[in-house]
Every structure is written in structure tokens, then in C-alpha cells.
Simulated scan of single mutants.
Amino acid sequence: MRYLKDQNDRGYWGEPASEFWDMVFPLCEEHNIPFVPIDWFELDVWNAFDPFNGYSGVERKELEQRDDHWFAEQMETYQFGEIPFNSKEFDRVTRQKYEWLHQVNAKAQNFRWVVRNQIMVQRVKNTIEAHPGKRILCIVGADHNYIFQEELMLEPVELLYPLR
């Protein structure tokens, strides 16, 4: 949403990703395509819901290493599908990663993952409703793919996923 207020505001934590500045925003501007932001997180509370809060020392280090291991497993799926990280294999590993994070800290996982995705999917549904019959390109980080697919398959839309 920052982009809509100030096209020079590059956000925080690399959000949005550089691809938005290099490709998405220029395309939208050139072709007068509406850009509707859907991502959600609030920095004033985000760190309070770190999934490893409550863990310290060796235990926290082990959890962080396991989290790194999950990321490595996700990266190993690059060879599946026509587009890296756009496959059922990636989605399977990603779902397992977030189920593990739920076991580690259910409260943090609910805030950072479940609620965040509910808000994001609802914003997509609102966009679909606001633009009936129009084609919509929804760009999200690959970790969100499996949730968006599950939720949007329930809507009266033609969903193209994984991309070909």
C-alpha cells in the first residue's frame, strides 16, 4: 500500500521484492493496470510473534537450524515443474514446514501465517469482486501458493496454478 501513496517508498525488509520495482510497477504504469496490494504484516507487532520466542540458547539455535533445513528442503524442489518453486512438490514441503512451525509456537504461527494468509486471500477475493470478468494476476511469495490454491479453488474463478 505504501507504493500507492508514494511510488518512491521502497518499504521495509525488502517488501515488496525487487521484481515489483523492476517489472510489476512499470508494467502497471505503462498499461494503466490497477495495482492492488494484498500482503499484510504490521511491524509494530511482528517481532512479538517470532516463532522462536520463549526459546533460548541451544534450544533456539536448534530450532533456527531446523528452520534453515526446511528452507533447504524447499530449495531442493527447484527441478519440479516448469517454473521453480511453483509445483506440488514445493507446496508439500512448504506445508510441512508451516505445520512444524505450528507445533513450535501455535500462537505465533496463527498470527504470522494463518491470519496473514486469511487477510491476503480476502483481499484477492475483494479484488475479484471489484473486477468481475477481468483477468487478475496474483503475485505472492511461493510459500503462500498452497494456501491460495486451496482457498481460491472454492471461488467461482478459473484458477491457473501451477503456472505453465
Rank of each mutant, 00 (worst) to 15 (best):
I83F: 09
R112E: 12
F80Y: 11
D91N: 07
N105Q: 13
M23R: 11
D22Y: 12
K97D: 05
A130C: 04
I119L: 11
Y161S: 04
L163C: 03
L43T: 05
N117T: 05
R135F: 11
K125A: 02
Y78V: 03
H131K: 05
W46L: 08
F49Y: 15
L63T: 09
P16C: 14
E99L: 07
E89C: 04
I38H: 06
L101S: 06
I136G: 05
G54W: 08
N110V: 08
V114T: 15
D143Y: 14
N8P: 00
C138T: 15
V124L: 01
N8L: 10
N47A: 03
Y12D: 00
D50R: 09
P132C: 12
K97L: 00
E150W: 03
I128V: 15
Y55D: 07
A130H: 06
H144R: 08
A142W: 05
W13G: 00
H31N: 13
L137P: 01
H69A: 14
V24P: 02
E158F: 12
W70T: 10
Q65A: 15
V114W: 13
F148G: 06
W21F: 15
L160S: 13
R10S: 08
D68Q: 15
A48T: 04
W100K: 04
N110S: 11
F52R: 03
D50P: 02
P132A: 14
N117L: 03
Q96R: 11
R2H: 11
